[in-house]
Structure formats: C-alpha cells, structure tokens
C-alpha cells in the first residue's frame, strides 16, 4: 500500500495537483495495480458525468430565455418603455425617418457609406449591416460590431432579423434585392438622453411580435436559413 489517499487521487483527476505531486502519484500508480484501478475508476466517473451532461450544452437555448435577454438588452431603468411609447412615439416609418435625421445617420441619396440607404422610398441595409444580416449567426458573433438578435419567419413568408449596433438597432426583412429595414432605433452606444427617450428594445420587440410567424429560429434553423441565403 502507499500513502496516496482518495483526496490526492481525485485531485489528480481534477487537474488540481502541481507537477511534483502529480509525478509522485503517477509513480505510485505505476507500481500499484490496486491504486491504478481506483484511479481508473475516478477517471471513468468524471468522463461519464461530463459525457452525460454535455449534450445539454450543445442544445439550442430555449426561445423564451433568448428573448428575455434580448428584450432586456437596452432597457434604461429611468424610462419605462410603455410610458416612452405612449408619449414619445408614433409607429413605423415616421419614427425611423425622424431617428435617421436625429442621429445624422444614413445617406439619403442612395449611395454613401452609412449602414442604411434609401432606395425607391424604402430603407435598405448596406455595407457592414447588410453583410451582418446576410451572413452573421447569432451563435457566433462575440466581437462583431453589429450583433444579430432574433431571426424569424415573417407572417406571409420571408425572413426577418433583429440587430443591435453602437449607432443603430432595428429589425430588417429579406427582400429579393437585400434587407429592407422595418424599424430603426438608437443603438447601444447612444447617450442617455437619447436612449431614455427610446428604450429601443421594447419597440423592437413589439415589431418582432407583430411580424413574427411562430417562434424565433434556433441556432440550427438559423444556420439552415443562412445557407439558403434567406430565400
């Protein structure tokens, strides 16, 4: 028998031993088949537990939890979204247009290098925003400047996605030629005075609710829709 106790054995399995102790135990294990069998048992137990619960981590996150985190994304406690909506906001294009003016974003001539252009009377995503909407997956965007929120099927067909950036956040739907912006609000980088007036998320969620057919896409569905180029 050796002086290796159970605590040291499991510390080895858990990666908690320094180099010297690790070698000492490994030598002891090499000389003692009974100890080796106990070590093996602990390794198998750890592997079995890890394997058992691993598939849960790989599952798509339930839509309710995702929505909770995305709905809260820009709530400013000082401004109740409902009050803000009642007092300050209209709906649809009027909001979007006034925001575009107010924020000084966008190049209304149709060209330019802003995230949104106006083409034939509708707002169309361009540049970085267009490429995020077209190609970015919500599950893989750690440091992306524009973050995709929910992707979902639109009532009557077609795909839409919500997005959030420093300057603007909004909802856009895929049309034949590109992504038509349905709604724009100030993004996460806006200063408090403006953000209070907007608390953008509540209105974006309302838009998503109004447009959405069913529930948001999970990660696998999102990937599949992207692969089909949102057609």
């Amino acid at each position: 028998m050796t002086d290796i106790d159970e605590t040291m054995l499991i510390a080895l399995v858990d990666g908690e031993l320094d180099e010297v102790s690790r070698r000492r135990i490994e030598r002891a294990v090499a000389e003692d088949p009974a100890l080796a069998a106990r070590l093996d048992m602990h390794v198998r137990l750890r592997d079995r537990l890890a394997d058992h619960y691993a598939p849960i981590e790989a599952e798509p996150v339930p839509a309710a939890m995702r929505a909770l985190l995305q709905a809260e994304a820009k709530v400013v406690p000082l401004a109740r979204p409902v009050a803000a909506r009642r007092h300050a906001w209209m709906t649809g294009g009027a909001i979007a247009a006034s925001l575009l003016l107010g924020l000084g974003i966008g190049h209304f001539s149709g060209g330019g290098d802003g995230p949104v252009a106006v083409e034939q009377g509708t707002m169309v995503a361009q540049g970085e925003l267009a490429s995020a909407l077209e190609t970015q997956l919500a599950s893989a965007q750690d440091s992306a400047p524009i973050r995709i929120g929910l992707s979902f099927r639109r009532k009557g067909g077609g795909w839409c996605r919500s997005f959030e950036g420093q300057a603007i956040s909004g909802v856009a739907c895929r049309q034949e030629q590109g992504w038509q912006v349905q709604q724009l609000v100030p993004g996460s980088g806006q200063e408090t005075a403006y953000r209070q007036a907007s608390s953008g998320d509540a209105r974006l969620m309302a838009t998503v609710d109004a447009l959405m057919d069913g529930s948001p896409l999970d990660a696998a569905q999102e990937k599949a829709a992207k692969a089909r180029r949102w057609q």
Partner: peptide, 16 residues
C-alpha cells in the same frame, strides 16, 4: 459586449 450578450454566451453552460 453587453451584460445580456455575456449571459447569452454562457447560457448553454448554465442550463447544463
């Protein structure tokens, strides 16, 4: 990254 997106990133582990 925002607080919410950090939470979203670790959510699969939290569910586990």
């Amino acid at each position: 990254m925002s607080f919410e997106s950090d939470l979203l990133a670790i959510l699969p582990r939290l569910r586990r």
